[in-house]
Design a protein around this nucleic acid. Structure first.
Length: 211
DNA sequence: ACATTAAGTGATT
DNA sequence: AATCACTTAATGT
């Protein structure tokens, strides 16, 4: 079961022996939309490998201000968890399933083993650090240089990619939380985007026309 | 019909 | 861009 799923999504990334080991040591798990996978401060003894779906990674300050950093998709893993997994420190980010997703959890003990044993695993970890860093920089740029209206539109188009649908089921309030702004501001900017013909607004739903 | 929740809006800082 | 103070609209019971 796990083996087939792995074969389907990771056969080009990992060598046969490693796929066997992952299938043997890992546990397959289905998560529902909005399920909390990892909270700030959590310690974890397993790291997730994403098969399908998407995970939203966000950051939160002590004051409760939250901000979305990026999304993880198939082939991604939360690289931050590698560090935390190996030295068993606590997570600095939160991970919530953005949609129904399938994951394989790998016990952290295996990570070090595979690091020395499999070249494909080393590459995977290094690549994923690289990709994650890139996403992080993009997140910083977005926060530092884009105004709220641009951030909002980027958020919507990113979400269209992630959800693989131009019709987003979300509320203005949820978006406000993700962008760490107020609902009123989101409502106004969305209205503006609608007037520009870029989106169409409904209750609990936004149709993205221009992306 | 009534209550609840989402979304729209003017005014103010 | 945030907050307040409503208003209006949609939806659930």
């Amino acid at each position: 079961m796990i083996r087939e799923k792995l074969e389907e999504y990771y056969s080009v990334v990992f060598e046969k022996d490693l796929l066997d080991e992952i299938a043997q040591a890992g546990t397959y798990k289905k998560v529902k939309e909005n399920e909390l996978l990892l909270d700030i401060g959590d310690k974890f003894h397993q790291i997730p490998l994403i098969l399908t779906g998407a995970i939203k990674i966000s950051r939160e300050t002590k004051k409760g201000d939250e901000i979305v950093l990026y999304f993880l998709e198939r082939g991604d893993t939360c690289t931050i968890t590698f560090g935390s997994g190996l030295n068993s420190s606590k997570s600095k980010v939160r991970g919530v399933a953005e949609k129904d997703s399938e994951l394989i959890f790998i016990p952290v003990e295996k990570l070090e083993d595979w690091m020395v044993k499999y070249k494909s695993w080393r590459n995977f970890v290094i690549d994923s650090y690289d990709i994650r860093l890139g996403e992080m920089l993009e997140a910083i740029d977005t926060l530092a240089f884009l105004k709220m209206d641009q951030r909002l539109f980027k958020y919507l188009t990113d979400k269209v990619q992630i959800m693989r649908s131009t019709s987003l089921n979300t509320t203005h309030q949820e978006i406000a939380v993700d962008l760490n702004t107020s609902r009123v501001v989101v409502s106004r900017l969305l209205k503006q985007l609608e007037n520009e013909g870029k989106i169409k607004l409904y209750r609990n739903k936004i149709e993205v026309l221009d992306f």
